[in-house]
Design a protein around this nucleic acid. Sequence first.
DNA 1: CACTTAATGATCTTCTGAAGATCATATTAG
DNA 2: CTAATATGATCTTCAGAAGATCATTAAGTG
Lengths: 71, 71
Amino acid sequence: MIKCHLSKIMGERKLKIVDVARDTGINRGTITRLYHETASRIELEAVEALCRYFDCQVGDLFELQVDNDTD
Amino acid sequence: MIKCHLSKIMGERKLKIVDVARDTGINRGTITRLYHETASRIELEAVEALCRYFDCQVGDLFELQVDNDTD
DNA sequence: CACTTAATGATCTTCTGAAGATCATATTAG
DNA sequence: CTAATATGATCTTCAGAAGATCATTAAGTG
């Protein structure tokens, strides 16, 4: 599965969901879904805003979790 | 902007859109959009399928293009 | 403690765009 | 040329992000 490291990054920087939502302009619901890893779809615009905000690359935010299964 | 390197990867491996669509199970229209970089939203499931298919990481497929602007 | 304010989770409607199918037009093979 | 395959374009369907709102919880202040 695709793992989203948003909660880890936010934790490291001690940021709240509202902070990220406010500063990036991304909807709070979307941040919440990414934070709790319940999102199944993502706007590239949101990915870009988060990468810029955290000054990181796409690969730092999303990672392919290599499980045994193809799931 | 977020750059999708699908066309580059496909070119390197000499794969056609139908090949990728068939082998990954992803809709051809979606592959076409990613190939031509006209997609604005992406299913994490599709990202995972592509990463597994190309045996690469999310960061190899998508990259934050660091332009001067925040756009 | 009570009161206020901010943050979060949950829920609902709206709206965008991927999924899926189909058709027309290349492109390639015979 | 004919047949098969690949691609682009278009349409409908449907999932889920966007946006707003409400209830609950946490944090701060008197």
